[in-house]
């Protein structure tokens, strides 16, 4: 999930009786699965929650380019380089779709980006982990994009029209990302030498738990989920999505011939799901707070890119203003 712990600012969900007429009409639309569109009336807290969630999602796409950029200059073959470039290009594109959806709520992209750089806005905790070997490009595609897709498929039905439409577009385009990642790993496992196989296992060992953390805290520790679910900004709970991800991923892991670093992982005949061990929540909250291995670096890099580019953006604007009349033709 690219959005974690999105604050709704709501302490207690209002019952139908406690709602104003406007709020009731709004909730009825939500309940009837009618999409909310930019100019429709909406509760201020719904709007704020959406801004937080969509921008967090957008920031994640953009920051997510950095761990991949770390390897794009070192991709081992021309084909792998082309695939990775296409994927990175998509991430930037998805960031733009999402910022564009967010702007329909009356905020500007530049303000959102500023919030990211000041540390006020968050992005997915996963991108604060480093990519240390080439197999990480495979594991990121398979596990990280895989986890994101589980969430995004559900979000295609989110209640806000522009967000839902960008999710539909993103899901359509992202289907190749996960396959691209899995194929990198499978090739290394099936046709690679011992050193390559070790790279794959090492990548999975490091990225497995952080991938599970992408879905956010356990439902009992997720105070904002209820309101988000009632507004249908979220459509399924963190634990449900996490379980679905694990259930669909473990068989793929077995095909690879790899393991995950969880001694408690086993198939539960009774529930029809995999049981798994306890996530290191302490680590999760520390990474969210800014204490992950790459937090500082990621933000500084993004901030530097945008700050260093200010003169370019200013110049383009100045040029357009000088030639406003001739451009209008």
């Amino acid at each position: 999930m690219y959005a974690q712990m999105v604050d709704t600012g709501v302490k207690k969900i209002k019952t139908l009786e406690e709602m104003t007429q406007e709020e009731q009409a709004f909730q009825k639309k939500i309940d009837d699965e009618i999409k909310i569109e930019p100019k429709d009336w909406m509760p201020e807290k719904y709007r704020q929650t959406l801004i937080r969630q969509i921008s967090q999602h957008a920031h994640s796409e953009v920051v997510g380019m950095l761990p991949e950029g770390n390897w794009v200059t070192r991709a081992p073959t021309l084909k792998r380089k082309l695939q990775l470039m296409a994927k990175i290009q998509d991430e930037a594109g998805h960031g733009l779709y999402l910022y564009s959806a967010c702007e329909t709520l009356g905020v500007s992209r530049d303000d959102l980006v500023e919030d990211l750089h000041s540390g006020k806005a968050k992005y997915s905790s996963i991108f604060n982990y480093p990519t240390l070997n080439w197999a990480d490009m495979g594991a990121v595609g398979w596990l990280v994009d895989g986890a994101a897709i589980v969430n995004q498929v559900v979000l295609q039905r989110t209640s806000y029209g522009p967000y839902s439409r960008s999710m539909i577009r993103i899901c359509k385009e992202e289907s190749f990302h996960q396959r691209q990642g899995y194929e990198i790993l499978l090739t290394m496992m099936r046709e690679g030498n011992d050193a390559q196989k070790q790279m794959v296992q090492d990548a999975i060992d490091r990225l497995w738990w952080p991938s599970l953390m992408m879905f956010g805290p356990r439902d009992d520790d997720s105070p904002n989920s209820q309101q988000s679910l009632a507004w249908k900004i979220k459509r399924q709970s963190n634990d449900e999505l996490r379980q679905r991800f694990i259930d669909q991923t473990i068989p793929q892991l077995e095909v690879l011939g790899c393991t995950v670093p969880d001694p408690d992982l086993k198939w539960n005949e009774e529930t029809g799901h995999y049981d798994f061990g306890e996530i290191q929540w302490q680590e999760f909250y520390q990474v969210l707070k800014g204490n992950g291995p790459c937090n500082r670096d990621r933000i500084r890099t993004r901030k530097k890119a945008i700050d260093d580019g200010a003169w370019v953006r200013e110049a383009a604007l100045a040029h357009a203003e000088k030639h406003r009349d001739s451009n209008a033709a």
Binding site: S100, H319, A320, R324, N327, A328
Partner: peptide, 11 residues
């Protein structure tokens, strides 16, 4: 399909 930022129509 959505929106883009640009300084002029050409961009």
């Amino acid at each position: 399909v959505g929106s883009v930022h640009a300084t002029d129509a050409k961009m």
